[in-house]
Design a protein around this nucleic acid. Structure first.
Lengths: 191, 191
DNA sequence: GTGATTTCTTTACCTATGTAAATGCATTTG
DNA sequence: CAAATGCATTTACATAGGTAAAGAAATCAC
């Protein structure tokens, strides 16, 4: 629970009483490599804090083409945030790429705390703002940069990930095929 | 101010006292077609509520290529949200595509209200969550759909906009050139 | 270790979309 | 009205990146 507390306090200071209520909502759990935390079509109920491991969030379209929208590496929150917020079905899947340990909580339980703990609602506001900022940053990369530059940014942003997950997942994150990623890698190596 | 009040109350109910404080922060202003509300490189200070008119938000990369990330049509909030939240310079520009009337407020003034008015902080949380959801929705369109489908969605989402702004702005929103948009239009017309 | 599976790279070919330039139409401006 | 400007379309050509298939390497299972 310690890393969770640290994470929250970095968002915004949490009083001891608020933390007690919050902590009570989370319970440890583990995911095996390949397990899904959320699935498109189902409405999310839980949010979780990733203590260790790697999770990918991805879309799959009607032709079964997948797009890895994000890799979660600990410590951070995972879960179908858009689904939790809107109470509509997930459009994304989240799958463990390695064995993971997580802390899960019912999102509704957290929402109830907003009434009695304004400091928690504040942390939630700041978290939502951060999520937005991260998405905007990623949007800029996707629409304004070519695949070569996106690959360079990926390498800087997730330094170790390239050794930990298959290359086709990285290609999917970059919005290209493994074929094209291989071409880019060859081009960059011969320089 | 009425549409602003309606907008806030739809996010989450605002007490009369909170509304009085909030209303006092906003003052009417107008933008001429072509005027910029925010500019990349500058740190945003104000947020605004668009009462009438059309605004485009766009990125411009180092090669002067532009990408229209969003069209704001009233009534909604405009402003460099990521910049306001992070207090770092804007990465985007926002420019009036028609004459606009807006209500502007110092964002710092709103943030100060969070202390005394939890109902306003709640509205801010919900707004941030909505911003995130909208961005995720748009991300799905960009990465998973081809330009033809994105054009169809654009037409549904902004039914009148096609008659109100030049086609090259729409092409830029779709992530293609006017040339390609023209090809798509011809293809769709001949069917 | 040996075979089986998974992952990565390479090749050949194809397609969507970009670039640049020409044209035509519509709208504004003196 | 005439010229100028802005915008949409078209054409010819170029290119980034996709698809499919095959081979090479690495990893896993027994």
């Amino acid at each position: 629970m310690h890393s969770l507390k640290t994470f929250f306090n970095r968002l915004s200071p949490i009083s001891a009483q608020s933390w007690d209520k919050l902590e009570a909502l989370f319970s440890p759990q583990s995911l095996k490599k390949g397990d899904y935390f959320i699935t498109a079509g189902e409405t999310a109920r839980d949010i979780a804090f990733l203590e260790s491991g790697i999770i990918r969030a991805f879309y799959r379209n009607s032709e079964a083409v997948e797009y890895n929208k994000h890799f979660f590496t600990n410590p951070c929150f995972i879960g179908g945030y858009a689904s939790l917020v809107t109470k509509t079905p997930n459009q994304i899947h989240q799958q463990a790429l390695t064995d993971c340990t997580i802390l899960t909580a019912r999102y509704a339980g957290i929402q109830e705390l907003y009434e009695s703990c304004p400091d928690i609602e504040r942390a939630a506001r700041i978290l939502a703002e951060q999520f937005f900022v991260q998405k905007e940053q990623r949007e800029i990369e996707i629409v304004l940069l070519d695949a070569d530059k996106r690959y360079e940014i990926f390498q800087k942003h997730f330094p170790q990930l390239e050794q930990q997950v298959p290359q086709y997942h990285i290609a999917s994150y970059l919005g290209i095929t493994p074929t094209q990623l291989s071409r880019i890698r060859r081009k960059m190596a011969g320089r």
